[in-house]
Structure formats: C-alpha cells, structure tokens
C-alpha cells in the first residue's frame, strides 16, 4: 500500500463527493425532498410506534362491532370480524416497511458488490451484465411473482423475490457510475502511487458513486412497497394472520360492495408512502445528481 496521502488529489469530478453540510442545506431548500421526507417520515414514525399508539391488538375480534363505518370511535372503521382497522393498518405498515427496508438493504449490499465488480473489473463485466439482462428481460413484478410462487408464501420469500428482481437494476446504476469514475485523473494518480485495486475501489471509486446509489435506493424502496402489496394480495406473502397492507386489501376485496373503506384505507396508506418516497427520490436526484435530472425544471 502506498503511504502517500491521496486525499488532496480528490477533485469534484462529474459525480461530486457527498459533502454532508452543504448537501443537507440544499436538500432542505428542495420542496420535493422536504414534502417527501415529511410524508414518508410520518408513515415511518406512526408505524414504528404501532405497539404503543394502536388502540387495540390488530387481531382482537369483537363481532358486536363488525363492519362499523369510519367514525370518531373507529377512525378507519372495523372489518368483518370487528377488528379495529386503525390497529391493523398501523401494524400492516410495520410489516410492509420492514420488507421494503430489507429489500433496500440487500440491494445496497449486493447491488454495490456486483455493480462495482462489473464496472471495475472488465473481465467480469460481460458475464454479469448478460445474466442481469436475462433477469431484466422478465417484467419485474412477473418475475417476483414467479420466484415467490416457487419458494412458497412467506415474508422471507417476498424479500428474496423482490431483491432478485431489483438487484440487477441497482447494480446497473452503480456500474454506470463506476465506469465514469474509474477514468478520472485521481484514480490514475492513485494507481500511479501504487495503490491496489481493492484500495482504489473502496477509497477512491465507490465514495464517488454514492449519489446515484442513494437516489436509486429511494426508488427501490418505493417499488418494493408497491410490489409487496401485489405479492401479498396474490397470497404469496405473509400468512393472513399477520396483516400487511397488501393482505388488508386482499381481505377487504371480498366486502368491497358493503365496506369499501376496508380496501380504500390500506391502499391509501400505500399511496402516501410511495408518493413520499418518490418525492424524496426526486429531491435527492435534483440535489445529488443533477445530470440525471428528468423533470426538475
């Protein structure tokens, strides 16, 4: 390893390094980011607090109170077994967001590993990208459904299926930025100083690829919440006793004529979460990675 300190050689390249203070100030001035952060933050906080703020156990039945319309007593109404929908939606959100967080975590880990490997080591690029092409040839939700159908219904299944579907996409995003960064002068300089591949990759290349990755992960979170609902709705997710938003919609579907709120409210919760994440992602993209700007004007 070279003993030379290479830090002064870093220059803001095409993909600027994250500077926490300045970036934060710019984010807080971005309307999309702030709105998204408030919406998504609200959902995260109330679902995390579910054990303390939900009025009753999500599975406690009270036949006497079945099919109550939303009212002061039951803001989200009650279902066919008299279960309080406030509790069920809060607890359901916990599971939906937990699954989303797992998918994002696995995407960050394996997306970075595969993307860095194929962007940095030319020999690995061909096979890895061909394989990801093949995975991406399937429509995303359809492939997730196929994998989940094979593995059998469970929460783990949903996490695995969604990760397999989105990791190639994340890896591609990272590969694209690695390809740009590794041609920068400071990488050449690091190599000239005798730095090894691993050191160059970890210290000089990857830190400069973080911006597009963070943007991508916020969208992966949004897709994961949406797709989790689809898989659970089809009966491929968690068992029906543990509510998730998708399962609540599936349960409500049977009573859609007489009790539309059973379907409307969990779906609305998904929409608010995904809207928040999309706004968050848009804002992050505008601030961190202006080259990718699609419609920020």
């Amino acid at each position: 390893m070279a003993a030379v300190d290479l830090a002064p050689l870093h220059r803001p390249g095409l993909l600027a390094r994250l500077r926490p203070g300045r970036t934060m100030r710019r984010l807080l001035r971005n309307r999309a980011f702030v709105t998204g952060a408030i919406l998504f933050g609200f959902i995260v906080v109330v679902t995390l607090l579910a054990p303390w703020i939900s009025p009753s156990d999500p599975n406690r039945m009270a036949i006497r109170f079945r099919f109550r319309e939303p009212s002061w007593e039951f803001p989200f109404g009650t279902d066919n077994l008299g279960r309080n929908m406030v509790s069920r939606v809060l607890w359901g959100g916990r599971l939906s967001l937990e699954i989303g967080a797992w998918v994002v975590g696995l995407n960050a880990l394996f997306g970075v590993m595969l993307g860095a490997a194929s962007g940095y080591f030319r020999r690995l690029d061909g096979p890895l990208m061909r394989f990801s092409d093949a995975l991406m040839a399937f429509p995303s939700v359809l492939l997730a459904i196929g994998i989940a159908a094979a593995l059998g219904p469970s929460v783990t299944t949903v996490v695995v299926a969604l990760s397999v579907v989105y990791i190639p996409r994340t890896a591609r995003v990272l590969r694209a930025s690695v390809l740009v960064v590794r041609e920068q002068d400071y990488v050449q300089a690091a190599r000239a100083c005798g730095a090894g591949d691993l050191r160059i990759l970890l210290r000089h290349v990857l830190p400069n690829c973080m911006a597009p990755l963070i943007v991508q992960l916020s969208f992966v979170f949004a897709y994961a919440v949406l797709s989790e609902a689809v898989l659970s709705f089809l009966g491929l997710g968690a068992p029906p006793t543990t509510p998730s938003w998708g399962i609540l919609i599936a349960e409500g579907r049977g009573y859609i004529r007489e009790a539309a709120w059973l379907t409307a409210i969990p779906g609305g919760a998904i929409a608010v979460t995904v809207l928040g994440l999309n706004l968050l992602g848009d804002g992050l993209r505008d601030v961190l990675d202006p080259r990718l700007k699609v419609d920020a004007r």
Partner: peptide
C-alpha cells in the same frame, strides 16, 4: 405512486 390493483378496486366501487 398508486398501486394499480387498488386503483382497479376503487374504480369498481
């Protein structure tokens, strides 16, 4: 941001 199957159900309603 809307789940399409939920939108379908709401349209039915």
């Amino acid at each position: 941001s809307l789940p399409n199957f939920w939108l379908g159900l709401m349209m039915i309603v």
